[in-house]
Nucleic acid binder design. Sequence first.
DNA 1: GATGAATGAGATTTCATTCAT
DNA 2: GATGAATGAAATCTCATTCAT
Lengths: 196, 196, 196, 196
Amino acid sequence: MARARALTPDVRRAQLLAAACRVLARKGYARASVSDIIREAGVARGTFYNYFESKQALFHAALVDLTAHIHGVVQPIDETADLPPQVLGNITRVVGAMLSSDEVVPLLNAVGHDEEADAVLRSFYADATARVAEALRRGQAIGVVRPGDPQLRACCLIGMVREPIFQAWLAGESLSADELVMEVLTFMSQGVLETG
Amino acid sequence: MARARALTPDVRRAQLLAAACRVLARKGYARASVSDIIREAGVARGTFYNYFESKQALFHAALVDLTAHIHGVVQPIDETADLPPQVLGNITRVVGAMLSSDEVVPLLNAVGHDEEADAVLRSFYADATARVAEALRRGQAIGVVRPGDPQLRACCLIGMVREPIFQAWLAGESLSADELVMEVLTFMSQGVLETG
Amino acid sequence: MARARALTPDVRRAQLLAAACRVLARKGYARASVSDIIREAGVARGTFYNYFESKQALFHAALVDLTAHIHGVVQPIDETADLPPQVLGNITRVVGAMLSSDEVVPLLNAVGHDEEADAVLRSFYADATARVAEALRRGQAIGVVRPGDPQLRACCLIGMVREPIFQAWLAGESLSADELVMEVLTFMSQGVLETG
Amino acid sequence: MARARALTPDVRRAQLLAAACRVLARKGYARASVSDIIREAGVARGTFYNYFESKQALFHAALVDLTAHIHGVVQPIDETADLPPQVLGNITRVVGAMLSSDEVVPLLNAVGHDEEADAVLRSFYADATARVAEALRRGQAIGVVRPGDPQLRACCLIGMVREPIFQAWLAGESLSADELVMEVLTFMSQGVLETG
DNA sequence: GATGAATGAGATTTCATTCAT
DNA sequence: GATGAATGAAATCTCATTCAT
């Protein structure tokens, strides 16, 4: 076989991570094998293990990367400025990040495959919920959010965003980020039932 | 060896399915092996294959059973009667069904493990969404639901219910069905933002 | 491939152990692979792992079996009877056990390959030394053994037996058990130097 | 990267050999990897193969060095001078050489790992035995050594020295060279049994 | 000469499935 | 029908060696 051109470790590592994400998106967590990944990356088996201690370590790294990226798009709320546009902006950016590539959704729904990966996802969701809950709590403090358990409400909000994305992926359909954001806003601001 | 009493096929099948569900709840889809299942059921390896073509077939059957059960708790809307209590009743019953046993949540989140199982889940979620969307559509027709894409809105509603249940399971915590139902109602009827 | 006749677990286990010993004798500890062992035993790869948790576990079991067997040929000393023939008998039986099959020597010299195996060998040699030392101590107590550190002397005696056996094996030559026993007796009773 | 200063081939070779010996002492023959050796020596992987054809070749060279060193401490017997002190001196020097460093014992017991290394050890032991046997033969000729097979007797003598050293190493204990030499002398000159 | 990224043959291990009893 | 020993394809992982720079 033609020997792959030697790269600096950082580059090769990133390449392997990217290849792994593509494979994960295509075959799913459970069916993605090291053989798939190295074929996708065009390197030899041993090369893989020069960069990751194990297949599990790779998946762990991929998830950590991904969740960090999503958290990264959230901007802290400036309480001295107008709130709604900031919240809207964050929702829009998160939805954008989740729809930005085909690889995000399957990874974020890959629960129950792997002890370590589950831990990463658990902390991702716990963290996201905690942030939203904190924002709600502040909103309640300044009287712009109705009373109610912030933790539970935060979960509902996350589900409201996550589920349409998840189902669109499951069905292989595309989803309009703008429409989703609008719908979430409707639920937040007035609900969907006409009130006499 | 101690030979298990010959049972009628249906009983044995049900016994295996129940054992499989318990194992799935305990170990998760990916880590449930045939050995686990037959140990739990107390039958020999070969016996398993007298009743299911493969491990995949068993999981498929378990999912079909489970999703049928959840669909079963939903009652058709009687449009001549008062709507809100019927909707409320259905939400309550679905939440109740999902919280009724430890086995439901892990199974409904077991995505990406298995081609066939994914198909079952896909159709479960598609079906659930379609039903809710249809209800919304009727609501819009008679003017009790605001305008908006029923499909997308249905997804949001399902996510609003599913996510808190999912996260509580992930965190190993319990969840109050009543509080969840109340919160969903709040989102539906008035939103969570105070309106000047 | 023709399916191997199903055996009771005990028999199959013993067969695998025996096959492993033959392979170890032929190829040495480091170069004996699971593939070699199953080829020798005529079973499939998976069958091996039905009986031993790992390759290491098999080697451990083989060593435990072997060392137990050698210890088993040693008979306790009856202090009310004549001592020399009893000692002579034990030496003869141990030498006999070590020469009884080609597999003993390579196994007893397989040091440094494997943490667990080393522990078995360590305790084998420690135990053997302790027994000989105890016999020497008793001999000193009743005045038939000269003064001197029993532990060290026991080691020397064991080496005196072990080394010729080891070297004969290394050179691929055979060794007369009787001559070895006689030589050891000479060293014990009078030494090899003529005394003026 | 930090490129090691180019050394003369002999120096570099010696440096690698020394590193290999340290690693061997620490991890044992079977667990010493090329990675360990180059890390210990502080050279790059490729450099290793500029000096040794293979890992096996390095171990071979290390053994040759070591065995040559041990043989080197043995002084030829001057038959015109008094014999016992010369024999005593040689035993003392050999024991001293074997105890001089932690690396000797594990290497001399590294049997069964490697075809070539086994050959080196085989010839080391054969040579040592031959020398001792020759000395015994001369002793018999001049009447200071009792009759008996010199070859077998030489093996016993070597075992008498080697075994205590081996066991002390196995147990991680230290050993007094003087006591060992004295004990060997006792076995040679009078045996350990009291004679009425 | 030195470097270290890349290699790949070969080892161990897993586990869903088969089939003789 | 029930049993459980046997199977083997396929997965993960190791590490001595190569070779372009």
